[in-house]
């Protein structure tokens, strides 16, 4: 892989705040043209990593390069090629959203100015209202627009859909797809897997300052599994369900069977169908659940050629 193909690289990134170690050796490699999801529970180090990449924080140890350049020395020329959306958007200006966005365009030498009204219309943002009077969702729209408007090569987005309602999240995802079609690379963080898995190609999971998993999105979802609950019209024997392929954490109480299902539901369904099923529910498990049951696959042990067929077996 040539140097030009790696858009973000971090090696052993460490960040200490006094005695608190926020990043404990973060290794990342983001390739040109991909949409890379960066997932982790709150406090895991997502924002810290991102803020090192945009040169707001300086690492305690380790190295980072963005578009082939260390953030600290990249200067304005590097920043012109990046679109950044901070995790905590604060806008207190008395100016209107349109004026503020115009200012950010000027800070980029005018790049993006023409797209502001177009993007504002897409997201339903009233450009005439003063920024500090905007709701959180509307401020987030301003943030998204200023990140995308100048069509940068690299987008670094920290929790970009926070505050956006589902319809706007869809619009945002469309923006990301357009950017990728345009050849841009997108690096986005979230603490909600379901948001990211729709658009990401690869996903890294960070927990307590280190990367604990790095996968295709499909593999990750396969690992995460589902929480299944089946209720029958009469009590069932646990033995019938124990040992079924993909079934874990089995709990049988009276007429209800609860378990975690990884992979194909076929065996479980056929076993359940032998009885009269009164109620069923299957929910995707989220990241938080993964960490609660101490799911941890050290990156070194991962078989990167692990195949996950579409049926998830």
């Amino acid at each position: 892989m040539t140097a030009a193909d790696v858009v973000i690289r971090t090696e052993g990134l460490i960040k200490d705040y006094g005695r608190v170690r926020a990043l404990d050796g973060v290794d990342l490699e983001v390739r040109r043209g991909e949409v890379f999801g960066f997932l982790g529970p709150n406090g895991a180090g997502k924002s810290t990593t991102i803020r090192v990449l945009v040169d707001q924080l300086r690492p305690t140890a380790g190295a980072a390069t963005v578009l082939g350049v260390a953030p600290e020395v990249g200067g304005p020329a590097l920043r012109a090629r990046i679109g950044y959306l901070p995790g905590e958007l604060a806008m207190a200006a008395r100016a209107s959203a349109g004026d503020l966005l115009g200012y950010y365009a000027r800070l980029r030498g005018g790049a993006g100015q023409a797209r502001i009204p177009v993007l504002a219309a897409r997201f339903g943002l009233d450009l005439t209202r003063p920024v500090r009077a905007l709701s959180k969702g509307n401020k987030q729209k301003v943030g998204v627009i200023q990140a995308f408007m100048h069509r940068p090569e690299l987008l670094i987005l920290d929790e970009p859909t926070s505050g956006l309602d589902p319809l706007l999240q869809q619009e945002f995802r469309a923006l990301v797809r357009e950017a990728r079609a345009d050849g841009a690379t997108v690096f986005l963080s979230s603490h909600v897997l379901s948001e990211v898995e729709v658009i990401a190609d690869r996903v890294a999971i960070i927990r307590q300052g280190t990367i604990v998993d790095l996968d295709d999105v499909r593999t990750l979802r396969h690992h995460a599994g589902q929480r299944v609950e089946l209720t029958f019209d009469r009590p069932v024997a646990a033995d019938a369900f124990r040992g079924l392929p993909g079934v874990e954490d089995l709990e049988v109480t009276d007429t209800t069977v609860r378990c975690v299902l990884r992979g194909e539901p076929d065996a479980l369904l056929k076993t359940a169908a032998a009885h009269r099923v009164v109620r069923w529910s299957a929910e995707d498990r989220e990241l938080e659940d993964l960490f609660l049951d101490h799911y941890r696959v050290p990156v070194g042990e991962l078989r990167t050629d692990e195949e996950v067929p579409a049926d998830g077996r």
């Binding site: 043209g33 991909e34 012109a80 090629r81 100048h150 069509r151 357009e178 079609a181 345009d182 050849g183």
Partner: peptide, 27 residues
Amino acid sequence: MAAETPLGETRAGAIGVRATVARVGRP
């Protein structure tokens, strides 16, 4: 995965042509 694009070449995207010249803020 998007096709590789050599750096320095402008490409017409769906919305317009992206300038590859880095535009920095004027003093």
